[in-house]
Design a protein around this nucleic acid. Sequence first.
DNA 1: AAATCACATTCGCGGATGTGAATGTAGTCT
DNA 2: AGACTACATTCACATCCGCGAATGTGATTT
Lengths: 130, 130
Amino acid sequence: MDHGNLTLEVQAHLLRTLAHPARLYILQLLRSGEVCVCHIQAVLGERQAAISQHLMALRAANLVRTRKEGLRVYYRIAQPHLLEALDNLRPLAIGAAGANARRAPRLRLMPSRGRCTCPRCQPGPKASSP
Amino acid sequence: MDHGNLTLEVQAHLLRTLAHPARLYILQLLRSGEVCVCHIQAVLGERQAAISQHLMALRAANLVRTRKEGLRVYYRIAQPHLLEALDNLRPLAIGAAGANARRAPRLRLMPSRGRCTCPRCQPGPKASSP
DNA sequence: AAATCACATTCGCGGATGTGAATGTAGTCT
DNA sequence: AGACTACATTCACATCCGCGAATGTGATTT
């Protein structure tokens, strides 16, 4: 009977966790597979601490999982249907854009996408080695 | 061009608009059709101004539309797939509940559901089916 | 017209949130 | 071991959001 009330708060918390462009972008980055933090940092262009906090929020919500490999930490999507659910929500945002799109933290992306020092970003012959 | 960046902010804004248990509950109330403000007020048990602010946020995001009938204002879902998209997101929230329960505004519902003075709630002694 | 109703809007305050600077920690290298 | 890397965490501060109180608006009734 009262299943609606508590669920609404939990769901609101999930939406709140998702409601940041940096976190949305991180999730989109993880769409094709696991990605190291240095890669996210290189693409997002934000400070390391800020990204770590966003990742902490995503971890606290059980939306991502981590795997350590040497020094790097690789993040991956924990819930397989998350991106699909976000994709379903996107067309509604387009309708919302016409009205009031005033409040939302701005996200600045680096023009050079994906230039970090991790071995996965240097798959080419010019690799600087490990 | 470069619509990816802006879209993330717009989508984040939409998620932020949805990220409140009262607004989620209002949207669930509108699932079966249009509902007057007095009804929402009676069910939610919140002050009138607070509800009006939530409704204002939903209107600003183009998620609901209004229709005036005499003194009352009836709200209805503007985007037909909104509730479906929210339903798809719900199972992910269940997974998030087990981990770190961060704070989210709490929602208190009135035990007597749907006792407002609008003609739709009065005439039928049967259960409220707006 | 005044009063009233149903709802919208504004303002101010307390708490939550995002960001930057600094610090902490685990793993790797020489 | 010490230096270094990659990432996590803490603290302080500015900002944003939600709520209550008060006020405004439009339609209806008297």
